[in-house]
Design a binder for these strands. Structure first.
Lengths: 344, 344
DNA sequence: TTGTACGCGTTATCAA
DNA sequence: TTGATAACGCGTACAA
């Protein structure tokens, strides 16, 4: 059942030296005879010796492990972020412990708890849709525990955050719809407690304003659940009941955009001639549907990389170094595709 | 920088008792006075005491952590498996350390190494496309270290595996194409060293045989890379150059199917009227493209769950219990969609 | 009912 | 150049 892994003691015993000598020999400490060093290394090699990381953690109070807490793994954007995290962690000799919360606050709290008692060196987190109270993070922050928020970032002082410029991305997307000649643009918004939803909504509003259009509150509806069916339902209803039917939809994510497209098509309208559609996130499917969906791509991999780099920097900084809260905002990119090209 | 986590010692000192008393009080050992127990628990609560998992690991040689090594995180099927793994692990109080190999053998080997020195209790693995030599796993197997292979499973004795019935899934898919009246079915196969590729190919062959059709070796081509572009290229070439143009494509995965569909369309052929297409895996996008792609769905979540259940069983079995190698094969399901419906 | 001592594997410190 | 010892945090056999 157990791996008969050799320890320093085994080597010491076999060579009739003390374990401290073995330890030093293995780490090329000065003041060890060539001969001893050779013998130790030889035997270590032969026994396939690997230092016990758990003992090291205990000794050094450092585990070379970081925790990642994420709402969902089965999500194109988040899995991309994880990939970026894993790359940087691996390159720096760190392990990654992964927890998914399934958007549940209680699970998020319990994950923080267990992960912390596992002595991780730092934490990367994108909090759940349910999270409105941040005291379980505040404790950590107060203790100067290294923690980086990504994508969904809180409005807390003294935090390190990595996110994308949701505001500009949304604004650019809506301006593009306006440029294409769409008149009445409906916005399928995200959950209200997420800052990213607010930012995208703000971008939508300001794009309208800068084109001298009225903001019409009936042209915005929130999608708290986030399924394709939800947005299908909303859009179907809106398009049937509105006095003035919208001729474009800007959705806060691609799933919602896909639902909107299906709804519009099922009402016998054509995309993009009758209705223009733009999504957010560049999910994999969005380029493969017909017509392909114009979307605002977020650099998920880069977010993961950058967040991890910042976290490692926090972990490895000297105790006395000043702590610098920062919010890094990465650029989005509007990928114009068929679903919004009214003009040719 | 560090979390000022309270330890048993802190509590002991504050209460003027020995740490063993505290330890026992916290764990409701018999033979502790009610009064002491109360005081200890009270203070532990107040100090937000959490046992140090690292110290526990060292003490017990058990970490309540399992390792997961996977080719890629950004992959619908694998991320679904991870999700299933995470659920079962979480429910049983286990942590998950995640490593992705990016389909690289050397990275796979180094991941096994670091993860093992982290004293994980068991390992879940789907090996890389490059892996043809299994000695880095054989070592573990020989030591009776708990390890479960999933999806991509090796032909090794004494292993525990969870996979899907690729053979039957493929056979059913090809039979469906035959039923729909397609005559010449091309097979885009997966990498040759993966058993799943072989099984799917066998299913393809046997479906033909059972319908009394000749197997034509020129009607099979392998996609070692696995990108949409690769299959686009292959199918374009095949459809232009074949003496008798195929009228259906069975692809070993949905990405390849999508590439095939794009290729076929760009040649001016219609799907499904002129060419039928079936994929494998039920990636998220496959239901959202036009026409939606018929595909063989694999129960990714279930695979993750089942593999983890088996692993935990291995981990927690008594030393003397017999070890039972097993290969669990989960059923696939053919999801018939527009891309293969010639008949109405 | 409670305390002492030891060990899990490693390394830092001090002594030889 | 090497060895003995203590410590990281915890659990437990043994002693009191």
């Amino acid at each position: 059942m157990k791996l008969g892994q050799a320890t320093i003691k085994d080597i010491a015993k076999a060579l009739n030296v003390s374990s401290s000598t073995v330890s030093r020999a293995l780490k090329d400490y000065p003041g060890i005879s060539k001969e001893t060093k050779r013998k130790v290394k030889e035997l270590a090699e032969k026994l396939n010796y690997r230092p016990n990381a758990v003992a090291l953690s205990l000794r050094k109070s450092k585990s070379f492990t970081i925790g990642v807490i994420i709402p969902e793994v089965v999500h194109f954007f988040f899995s991309t972020v994880i990939s970026g995290i894993e790359e940087i962690a691996f390159a720096n000799g760190y392990n990654v412990i992964l927890c998914q919360t399934n958007e549940s606050l209680s699970r998020e709290m319990s994950s923080v708890d267990t992960i912390i008692s596992n002595q991780i060196d730092g934490l990367l987190i994108s909090y759940s849709k349910e999270t409105t109270d941040f005291s379980h993070f505040q404790k950590l922050i107060d203790h100067n525990f290294p923690i980086v928020f990504f994508d969904r970032v809180p409005e807390l002082p003294n935090t390190v955050n990595v996110t994308v410029d949701d505001y500009s991305g949304a604004k650019e997307a809506v301006k593009h719809l306006i440029d294409q000649g769409y008149q009445k643009i409906f916005h399928l918004a995200g959950p209200k407690n997420l800052l990213i939803s607010t930012h995208r909504l703000d971008g939508y509003k300001d794009a309208l304003k800068e084109s001298n259009r009225e903001f019409d509150p009936t042209m915005v509806e929130s999608c708290p659940i986030g399924t394709e069916e939800e947005s299908f339902g909303i859009i179907t209803k809106v398009f049937q009941e509105s006095d003035v039917r919208p001729d474009a939809v800007f959705a806060a994510n691609d799933i919602a955009a896909a639902g909107a497209m299906r709804a519009v098509k099922s009402l016998g309208l054509r995309v993009p001639q009758d209705v223009g559609i733009v999504g957010f996130s560049n999910w994999q499917f969005s380029s493969m549907v017909d017509p392909p969906i114009t979307t605002v791509s977020q650099p998920g991999f880069k977010i993961g990389e950058r967040a991890t780099q910042l976290l490692l920097k926090m972990i490895n900084k000297k105790e006395e170094d000043p702590f610098e809260p920062i919010t890094e905002i990465l650029e989005t990119e509007l990928l114009v595709r068929g679903s919004s090209l009214k003009k040719d």
